[in-house]
């Protein structure tokens, strides 16, 4: 099966005036369809940068990025929005819902961008909200929802128009652990059901069990060969049992 995202030897250099800061140093990274990959690593290791490049928000300095088989690294600034629109759904730490629109309208806006309008958009929005168990909140405003509910709306919005890839940066950081688990579970189930590739940047050891795979970054590099799913699963259980602190768990993951 074709990978949802395939990143090869990607580098990123930020240019700030005369300073050049190399943030990514030849990153290789694959996400299969229907797979949830957790991207972890210390602050400043380049996770958000990598996610932005995969999401066609930033352009890599060099290397190749393929989304659903299409090479996007060489596309111009003006062609990227269309790729984002067609293939990528974002979930943000701060939810980034439109506060003045109702929950339903938030989804309709995402559909509107994809030229799904009118009655069809309403039906589709209802269906998407149903998938995150929030159909009853169609006419509510985001301010009236809990954090977990907001993030579920954001997931429904990210799924609008059936993108191949969902990219989430710290989606549970602003949530309590129950909501965080709930959100992650939903994201995993929807990814599996619809065959989406999901990348979640997270520091949150409470949600490790919802990943199929963990990729660890350090100083702009993938720290280790990707760990086996089985090995990770065992470790995740250990973490969720609270026997290991986050740091030692990450350390353990790196060496296994």
């Amino acid at each position: 099966m074709q990978a949802a995202i395939s990143v090869r030897d990607v580098t990123k250099v930020y240019v700030e005036g005369a300073n050049k800061i190399q943030v990514l140093h030849g990153v290789d990274f694959d996400v299969e369809q229907g797979e949830v990959v957790l991207l972890m690593g210390p602050s400043g290791s380049g996770k958000t940068t990598l996610l932005s490049i995969m999401g066609c928000i930033l352009r890599a300095t060099s290397g190749s990025v393929q989304i659903a088989g299409q090479e996007v690294a060489k596309l111009s600034e003006r062609e990227l929005p269309e790729i984002r629109l067609q293939h990528i759904g974002f979930v943000f730490q701060g939810f980034n819902l439109f506060p003045t629109l109702t929950v339903g309208e938030n989804i309709e806006l995402a559909l509107d961008l994809k030229r799904i309008r009118g009655e069809r958009a309403k039906q589709e929005a209802r269906k998407l909200l149903d998938q995150v168990e929030l159909a009853a909140k169609y006419d509510s405003f985001p301010a009236d929802l809990s954090g977990g509910q907001k993030q579920r709306v954001a997931i429904a919005r990210a799924l609008a128009g059936s993108p191949r890839v969902i990219l989430a940066d710290e989606p549970t950081a602003a949530l309590d652990s129950q909501s965080g688990r709930n959100v992650m579970e939903m994201m995993r189930d929807l990814a599996r059901k619809h065959g989406r590739g999901v990348v979640v940047v997270t520091h949150d050891s409470r949600v490790l069990e919802f990943g199929d795979r963990i990729v660890h970054m350090e100083d702009g590099r993938i720290a280790e060969p990707e760990t086996e799913a089985s090995g990770r699963k065992g470790m995740a259980e250990v973490v969720s049992m609270g026997l290991l602190s986050t740091n030692s768990a990450e350390h353990a993951l790196r060496i296994c």
Partner: peptide, 16 residues
Amino acid sequence: IREYGTLKAMGAPNSY
């Protein structure tokens, strides 16, 4: 501005 940034991230063309 944050909403416009979000719209852009979602793939809205500038014209939108």
